[in-house]
Amino acid sequence: MGSRHHTRDDAATAAADRHHSQVTLHVNGTPRTLTLDHRRALLDVLREDLDLTGAKKGCDHGQCGACTVLVDGRRVNSCLQLAVALDGSEVVTVEGLGDGGMHPLQQAFLDRDAFQCGYCTPGQICSALGAIDEARAGHPSHVTDPGTPSGRPMPLGREEIRERLSGNLCRCGAYPHIVDAVEDVIR
């Protein structure tokens, strides 16, 4: 979060070379320019370079969803996104949702006790926000009746919410309460 003026990070002093490039990411509204090892995933840029540790590393292979953030408005697994390939992108993490306070979905997670250990929680929240937008944009899911018309918002019942959030594992088993929280904000 913080100021919106352009920030040139310390790491940017490292020279671009065959294996490094200068990259600008707009993170939670702030442009951040860094010189990055091409191998660095967005998740590690957030956690290691920008000290935004809300996005979590659960598996590092796109198999758990704990690292979910929004890139150009869409939810993705930040562990599988090479940061160099995202130059110029807008990234929103759990730290950037509240606009100072708490986003209604964050409040709903709190109200519904939709977590225990909290490690999957930022990913669940970002994923749910992405999923809500996808449904609004008319994206179907595996459980959507194929007859549902295209191009219109898709209704989100509990079964739809469950299917759409299935890319976010929760080992504490908070699933039913997470669905409650998501229902709270789409009502």
Binding site: G62, G65, T68, R75, V76, N77, L80, S127, G130, A131, E134, A137, G138, H139, P140, S141, H142, T144, P146, S150, G151, R164, L165, S166, G167, N168
Partner: peptide
Amino acid sequence: AHPAVRDRWPALSQALLAGASGQL
């Protein structure tokens, strides 16, 4: 999600939605 795919080749839409996760 593409309307033409959903309407005319629904198996393709269904196959994609049966795979991976929303993020992937």
